[in-house]
């Protein structure tokens, strides 16, 4: 995937790989939140199993 919007560093100031696409920003945020929720749920499942196995 070639995501680079520039072909030269000459005169580059702000360049965007994703930050100018709101839908992608929302998607990245949702994926990040999802990872956190998934991890916490995984923790709780692990804890419940660990206590049951004792």
């Amino acid at each position: 995937m070639n995501s680079a919007p520039i072909t030269s560093w000459e005169g580059a100031e702000a360049y965007f790989t994703f930050a100018d696409k709101p839908a992608l920003l929302v998607a990245l945020t949702l994926v990040g939140v999802g990872v956190c929720i998934w991890t916490i749920a995984s923790m709780a499942i692990h804890e419940n199993k660990a206590y049951k196995d004792m």
């Binding site: 692990h46 804890e47 660990a50 004792m54």
Partner: peptide, 18 residues
């Protein structure tokens, strides 16, 4: 039921339990 560990796990020690 998400705040405190079981009594058995606390007595054993959480390292040992988890």
């Amino acid at each position: 039921g998400l705040l405190r560990v079981s009594e058995q796990a606390e007595v054993a020690g959480l390292d040992k339990a988890e």
